[in-house]
Simulated scan of single mutants.
Amino acid sequence: MTASTPGNSRPSTWLEIIAADPGHSHRYRERFRDLAARGQDIDGEARLIDAMVDRGAHVLDAGCGAGRLGGFLSAAGHSVVGVDIDPVLIEAAGSDYPGPTWLVGDLAELDLRGEGIDAAFDMIVSAGNVVTFLDPDDRRTVLARFTEHLAPDGRVVVGFGAGRGYPFDDFLADAAAGGLVSELLLSAWDVRPFTPESDFLVAVLRHSPR
């Protein structure tokens, strides 16, 4: 049994947030630059993903933001593609973390085959509450796009917090509708187990059995 997210009002999408506050993306970018400069650990999500895949894995950082996760994985030896809808953050990713392929794109319209990129990923990761910034009407579409881009034995890992308008049960139902099944549920990126009282979900998903 999974826990439902309290607070089910519709959250603002990322596009709505930056339209209302054009400086938001710049502050978001600087926040993580400042944390890194002060020696704060900003790589917990990336370390878990690195431990889950073979060296040289093909990884999609879906909703990559300013590139901290994809940049770490690229430096660890993986082939990384990062996609985000925010051009300010993609520019920051390219500046701070050269190496991965960084692309501006809408996850609801994801089709990397049109970019000439190998679309079979060993791992697709969506951290930083990305799924809660999607338009609710696009959630199932995005998860189905992940399925289409996933290698047969690949995994999708999605992490987000409670109270953001996307109940955990609804997310898992949307994942199932998109062709994904839960392999493991955690309550943090440091692999603490998920319980009905958890206020954070890290869902490890794979292709549904045919």
Rank of each mutant, 00 (worst) to 15 (best):
T147I: 01
L35W: 15
F32T: 02
G67H: 04
A62L: 09
F171H: 10
G77T: 05
R113L: 02
V191T: 15
V202L: 14
V81A: 00
E197G: 11
G70L: 01
N129K: 07
I117P: 05
A203R: 01
Q40V: 13
H207F: 12
P87T: 06
R27M: 06
V202E: 02
D170R: 11
S208A: 15
V125C: 13
L107Q: 04
W102D: 00
T13L: 08
G70I: 04
A93V: 05
G23P: 01
E115K: 11
W189F: 14
D170W: 10
D41A: 10
P87V: 07
A20D: 14
L184H: 12
G63T: 03
S187K: 03
F160G: 06
R38M: 06
Y166V: 13
A108V: 00
G56A: 09
V181S: 15
E183V: 13
A175H: 08
I18S: 01
R29W: 09
L186Q: 11
V131D: 00
A51I: 06
A173I: 12
F146N: 04
G165S: 12
P136G: 08
G44L: 14
G65W: 00
R38E: 08
R145W: 09
F168C: 05
G44W: 07
G154A: 08
R206F: 09
S126W: 04
R206I: 07
Y97R: 01
G70D: 03
R33F: 03
P6V: 12
A119H: 09
S182A: 15
S79E: 10
R47V: 13
I42S: 06
V142A: 02
A57Y: 04
M52R: 14
E148D: 15
F133P: 00
D118I: 03
G77Y: 09
Y166H: 13
A144N: 08
C64S: 13
F32R: 01
L205Q: 08
M1P: 03
D50Y: 05
R47S: 14
V88H: 07
S95F: 11
D43E: 15
L143N: 00
R192D: 15
A3N: 09
W102Q: 03
V158A: 05
T132K: 00
R31I: 02
L185N: 14
V80P: 02
L143A: 03
M52N: 08
D153W: 09
A3R: 11
G7F: 12
R29E: 14
G44Y: 08
I124Q: 02
E197C: 08
A108L: 02
D50P: 04
P152W: 14
D170Y: 10
L184T: 12
A92N: 05
Q40W: 13
C64Y: 07
A119N: 10
P11F: 08
P209I: 13
T141D: 08
D54H: 15
D21I: 06
D54I: 07
E148L: 11
V142N: 03
G71N: 05
A92Q: 03
W102F: 06
S126Y: 06
R192A: 15
V157M: 13
G165L: 10
I85A: 08
G82Y: 06
G63F: 05
G105T: 02
G77I: 06
P6H: 14
R139W: 07
D118N: 12
S198I: 11
R192P: 05
E45M: 01
F194M: 09
D190L: 09
D106W: 04
D170E: 15
V130A: 00
